[in-house]
Amino acid sequence: MIKHLAADLHTHTDISRHAYSTVYEIITAAKDFGLMAVGISNHCPAHPDGAPEGHFRNLRVIPEWVDGIRVYRGAELNFTDFEGEIDLSPDTIMNRLDYTIASFHDDVIPPGSVEDHTRAYLHAAENPLVDIIGHSGTARYEYDYERVIPEFGKNGKVVEINEGTFHVRKSSADNCRTIARLCMKYSVPVIVSSDAHFCRSVGVFEEALSMLNSLDFPEELVVNADMKQLESWFLHKRRVQ
């Protein structure tokens, strides 16, 4: 049974108007919750509340270690069309960030058909600039899970199990369960994230872990189950890039 995780890599700071905590408050919350690492991953420029590219290029001013917490520099990319295009430059992603999450947001692109979403995710699977597939259980962006999940695995992507989905996108819970089952079937790694928009949500994974534990999801497929697995993933990701 998965009881505790080492890191939370999907958090948002008050650079966005719909998030309400500073970077330091996010880091402090991670420490208070007993995490060993946290990632800062704000929305990218195509989102109405997204940060400008300069925000992501300058994340390097944040030390790698703050108050004993390992701090990773990330970004939540937006799909800007159904060909899987994203909204940060390759230079920023490759040279200034530790990882990326790629997600659909209806503030950026309204939902299309299942085939549209499937096509976008298949392109994302082949894109070396995308590391994590964000909250893909969202009901408004359903895709052909059986077709796409194995491709995520073949291309080294990690599938996010997003705690926020269980609270703000409750109709998506069954999709998340389906995705988790397929990740088990095809041995595709997942990462459990809070998608925190306020510091007190950092490290809160109750619903996501309950769902995974109900499936007897293997801990070895959870990238952030412990720091050894997380560091191994980062090391492997750098090598394949």
Rank of each mutant, 00 (worst) to 15 (best):
P45M: 06
G39R: 00
V108N: 09
I161E: 02
T28C: 13
D107M: 14
F104K: 00
P48E: 04
E85Q: 14
H55W: 14
C44T: 15
H123W: 12
A139R: 13
F82D: 01
D91C: 10
P48H: 02
V168T: 14
S89A: 07
S89F: 09
T80I: 14
E64D: 15
R60C: 15
D98C: 04
T165M: 01
S113E: 12
F56P: 01
A173E: 08
H167C: 12
V66Y: 10
L59G: 11
G156Y: 01
L88W: 03
L35G: 00
G112L: 02
N155F: 07
A51C: 10
I86T: 09
S89Q: 03
Y99S: 06
Y99D: 10
L35F: 10
G50H: 00
E163T: 04
M94K: 15
P111C: 06
R147L: 12
L59S: 08
D67A: 13
G74T: 00
G164Y: 07
D67G: 10
G34F: 02
L88H: 03
H135W: 08
V71R: 00
S89R: 12
A124G: 04
I93Y: 02
I26E: 03
T138K: 14
F79Q: 03
L77W: 00
I86Y: 04
E64A: 11
E146G: 11
D131T: 07
Y143A: 09
G153S: 06
T80Q: 05
V61S: 13
V114F: 03
I161R: 02
P110M: 14
A46S: 12
D81S: 08
D49G: 05
H43N: 06
S41G: 11
N78Y: 04
I132N: 05
I69E: 01
Y121W: 15
D67P: 08
A29M: 02
R60M: 06
F166N: 08
L97R: 02
S172Y: 06
T92E: 10
G68H: 02
I161F: 10
S89M: 02
L97M: 11
L35M: 07
D67E: 15
I27T: 01
R140E: 15
R140W: 13
R73F: 12
A102Q: 02
S41L: 06
L122C: 03
E151Y: 09
A29V: 10
I101R: 01
K157N: 05
G39A: 06
A120S: 04
G39V: 04
I101G: 02
H123Y: 11
E151Q: 12
G156A: 11
V114H: 12
I101L: 05
D144T: 11
D32I: 14
P45A: 01
E76D: 09
H43W: 08
W65R: 13
R70P: 11
D67K: 11
P48I: 00
V38W: 02
D81Q: 10
A37F: 05
G34W: 06
N155V: 07
